[in-house]
């Protein structure tokens, strides 16, 4: 079967891969590029574990075809920290115990980062609605919401 050559920028670095027409961006990231931080929880856009930012838009990587990513700029969990300096959201997730098993965590962090880039002072309700498509079965969400609010406050310098 013929594959398409896809050229993208992932976490600031040029990245190329080959994709069959039906391959999802999620499978391409995990299996072709080797970035397994983006998780598959459902494969149907319900759980948000595969949240990535494509051209500044938060999406589920399982609902994007890899071939659609030609020319796109993609951010994944692997690009959230700068070198060995954690993003404030990452630090606050650890500090607030906002993760238990940690499987949903990459998706939450990418989604929360996308929120804070658009709205640096969200209300709790705004955080909860923005993250409604990220499912966590462990925490009950309370500590996640607190961590996001606290990270936002820190990033505002509050």
């Amino acid at each position: 079967m013929s594959k398409t050559h896809v050229t993208t920028t992932i976490n600031g670095e040029p990245a190329e891969f080959l994709a069959e027409a039906g391959l999802s961006l999620l499978d391409a990231l995990r299996d072709e590029v080797g970035l397994t931080g983006t998780k598959e929880g459902c494969g149907s856009g319900d759980c948000g574990a595969c949240s990535v930012i494509v051209d500044d838009r938060l999406v589920c990587a399982c609902l994007v075809l890899a071939v659609e990513a030609e020319g796109a700029t993609i951010q994944t969990i692997e690009g959230v920290a700068t070198g060995d300096t954690l993003h404030p959201l990452q630090r606050k997730f650890i500090e607030h115990a906002a993760l238990q098993c940690g499987f949903c965590t990459p998706g939450f962090l990418v989604a929360a980062k996308s929120l804070l880039e658009k709205n640096n002072n969200p209300t709790e309700t705004e955080v909860r609605f923005w993250l409604a498509g990220n499912l966590c079965r462990c925490t009950g969400y309370d500590k996640i919401v607190r961590a996001v609010m606290d990270a936002a406050a820190e990033m505002r310098g509050a």
């Binding site: 931080g37 983006t38 997730f93 940690g102």
Partner: peptide, 8 residues
């Protein structure tokens, strides 16, 4: 924690 928040 760090492994889990960085996707590693």
């Amino acid at each position: 924690g760090v492994e889990k928040v960085t996707g590693r």
